[in-house]
Amino acid sequence: MPVEVFYDVLCPWCYVGKRRLDEALARRPAKLRWRAFNLIPGARREPAGTVPEAMAAYLAPEQVPGRIAVIHATGAELGLDIDLPGTRQVTSFDAHRLLKLAADHGRMDAVMDAMYRAHFTEHRVISDPAVLAELGADTGLDRAEVARVLNSMEYTDEVLADFHRAAEAGVRMVPSIIAGSGGPQPLLRPVDVLAGAAKN
């Protein structure tokens, strides 16, 4: 039974969740359906505030450093170099469209990993079509096809359908996962979730 994974490449916990999911899949293969999620409605292509500045909008100021430290440490345990103070907020809509193209070519995993690294480690602007075109080409996609897609509205309907599915399923945070007939749950222990899906 397919497992739905709701994510946004702007979410550091989604980066962590994907790495944990990769490890779980190595032990228990499963068919995944990646679902785009709109973590920051209204975000624009032009970089805005940093992640710590965004956290300060919903956390007490004294809580922000601790939350950042937890994310950095958790990422490091999994071999991920996450640097939130240098990460800026942008729209991920075109990034999701590129990932849909990558999925059609069997390259989604590679492109997603490259996109997370570009955003959270290299601090590249993943809303910039030139950056997305380079990421796509560097991970095996045809540069001309990537440019054509990014200069069109291709895959817009597919991304919006994922947003609608998230709302319909009651997904309000990412990373979230739906396996079988259950509702969304946090992607905390992928092995347990995949084991449950195998029983359905």
Rank of each mutant, 00 (worst) to 15 (best):
P2W: 10
E4L: 15
V5C: 11
F6K: 07
C11D: 06
C14L: 02
C14I: 03
V16N: 02
L21M: 06
E23I: 00
A30H: 11
A30S: 14
K31Q: 15
L32F: 14
A36M: 06
F37M: 11
N38T: 03
N38Y: 05
L39I: 04
A43F: 11
R45C: 00
T50I: 04
P52Y: 04
E53I: 00
A54G: 06
M55Q: 14
A56Q: 12
A56M: 06
A56N: 11
E62V: 05
Q63D: 15
V64N: 06
R67T: 09
I71F: 03
H72E: 15
H72G: 03
A73E: 12
L78P: 02
I82L: 05
D83C: 02
L84A: 06
T87A: 02
D94R: 13
D94S: 11
L101F: 10
D104S: 15
G106Y: 11
M108A: 15
D109P: 01
M115S: 04
R117K: 13
H119M: 05
R124I: 00
S127T: 01
G136W: 04
R148K: 10
S152V: 03
A161R: 15
A161Q: 13
A167I: 00
G170K: 08
S176W: 00
Q185W: 01
L188K: 14
L188I: 11
V191N: 13
